[in-house]
Design a protein around this nucleic acid. Sequence first.
DNA 1: TAAATTCCTGCAATCGATTGCAGTTTAAAA
DNA 2: TTTTAAACTGCAATCGATTGCAGGAATTTA
Lengths: 344, 344
Amino acid sequence: MRNKKRTTIYDIAKKLNIAASSVSRALNNSNHVNEATKKLIIKTAAELNYKRNTLASNLRKGQSKTIGVVVPFINQNFFSNVIAGIEEASYQKGYNLIICQSNELQSKEIKCVNTLINQHVDCIVISISADSSDHRHLQNVLDNGIQLIQFDRVADELETLKVINDNEQASLEAVSHLIEQGYKRIALLEGPQNLQIFRQRKAGYLHALRKYGIPVLEELIVENAWTKELGAEGTQKLLDLAEPPDAIFASTSDFSALGVLEVATAMGIKVPAELGICGYSNEAFTEITSPSITTIDQFSVYMGKTVANLYFQEMDNKDDTEVVPKIISIKPKLIVRSSTKRNG
Amino acid sequence: MRNKKRTTIYDIAKKLNIAASSVSRALNNSNHVNEATKKLIIKTAAELNYKRNTLASNLRKGQSKTIGVVVPFINQNFFSNVIAGIEEASYQKGYNLIICQSNELQSKEIKCVNTLINQHVDCIVISISADSSDHRHLQNVLDNGIQLIQFDRVADELETLKVINDNEQASLEAVSHLIEQGYKRIALLEGPQNLQIFRQRKAGYLHALRKYGIPVLEELIVENAWTKELGAEGTQKLLDLAEPPDAIFASTSDFSALGVLEVATAMGIKVPAELGICGYSNEAFTEITSPSITTIDQFSVYMGKTVANLYFQEMDNKDDTEVVPKIISIKPKLIVRSSTKRNG
DNA sequence: TAAATTCCTGCAATCGATTGCAGTTTAAAA
DNA sequence: TTTTAAACTGCAATCGATTGCAGGAATTTA
């Protein structure tokens, strides 16, 4: 690409024989410029195909009108939906998005965060990676005076703005639903317990059992089953037990629920009659498996919008007071489908 | 957020009682600084928690190390995969991504492109929106000396770098496959013909029919059927014909193929025995419907990587010559599944 | 010992837009 | 007609990092 020189406000100023400051003011629609000159300047700017250099503007103004987003994977349904939501809300406010993926690696996450700090983004939105253990890099964001918003997977001890799902409540409802459908031995496929969301989902499961006076059986709880393959593996073990479960709550994702369904189908076990299955996330495919899978919708696009709007709202009263760590909890919705419908 | 002042090179310079230029050189690892001072500077920078202000740096250097991406929707499988691919390749080169979605609207697309120009991105990667008619905004990108790479949905007349799928070849193979499976009356669900990709897919369909000496029947070609709902609607009409088709090639997407499958299932028509179905895109769900759906994989993540690498490659020999409009064509792969397997 | 290199370091301009301050012109009020 | 206010306009500094140029110190070569 040829490095054609771009038109600057100085070019416009020179052509009209006025000061650059007037040009700047006109283009910012300040009312400290004569209406006639303002119009002339705007017209000339258009003629010369002027484009404001946002870099220079941001440097001078000390802000970037940019939000940085860090997620484990851009191309996972939940995250791409959240990003779409953030984009929609941000676009309306004239903000841009810089997107990074951490690939579930703390090391890359740290680099991404640092890049965003260097870029002088106004806000960093993050859902931490699975192997995230310490959070100095996030503290660093705050120390640099950048707003930090965590969503979904949050580091609890960090006092920041947070947008989360009420995972425990959702799991409680899901497992309660299973119990009410008459399932008695309910297994849990759980995710990495260093992530709060998975701890909460387990808590919801335990809560439901307690509520209905059902004993907790360790043998029915399978660790680290958060892919389709691991879900299938765990299911195999569960169904090989002397007393196998009659329902499985795949709390990690719909993918592991899909693994459950495939194993059950392969073994000739009838769903939902002999085995109830509940997933998590409301992936598109849960509607079209046979039977369709009961799952939990997280309102992911809405979550993204909420994150962005939370930021804009905080901006509006930034001078007022210290930032109060605020947590917005979105209640996910249980979507009952065929895989758990035994009665009715 | 408190606007804590960030450490600048001047702070470091003052503390060490040297010139800012030396600090800059040290931090850029120039060899025009004494090794000892360099080490000292780097150490001090770390102590003061210095973060380079990329805005200032970019302004001075006249580049941004940023790639702008414009897609119709971030949260569509194909696009989020491409973006993930671009991110991966860009990250390695130290480039950032600014992501915008056009929502399939030319008006928003224009705004996105202009924002990216203002941001002084080094390169704009775009897959144009469905209602895109004129392309002055893209010409504008080039006029501003910004590299432009189109992918998948490209404006043919614009001489830019392009990364595309060989849609015609893929469609040819898909329809040939249907014919070889013994299907005789093959219908086509086509997409908006102002988009080249859909014209090409239609061309492949026609090509295959011609190749096998099968007459083209207008009544078997359904316009604008590129969502699940429209696909279902079109299918309904097709199957109500006096002589209904025995196969449907949903060239627009797997979603419309899903619509076909649902209508067929509802009408008690057996797939693949009585009706063959082929989709496009290899969405995750095509593997788990029953029957699973034959489709075409576009290697979307790979496509993203290709786009990014094409840019970096062009950068490397930017001074050499004029930019030659280059087109990279990726051959998609037909994935045969149950929905079209009649023999064997 | 003198001349020629090499190595470091600092000065000051630059990237492009913004903005506080001061000065000038014009209009309104007294 | 004089005073006061309002409306424009321009100067120059500023945001933070980079870099060409010049000068000084240290080292090497003659």
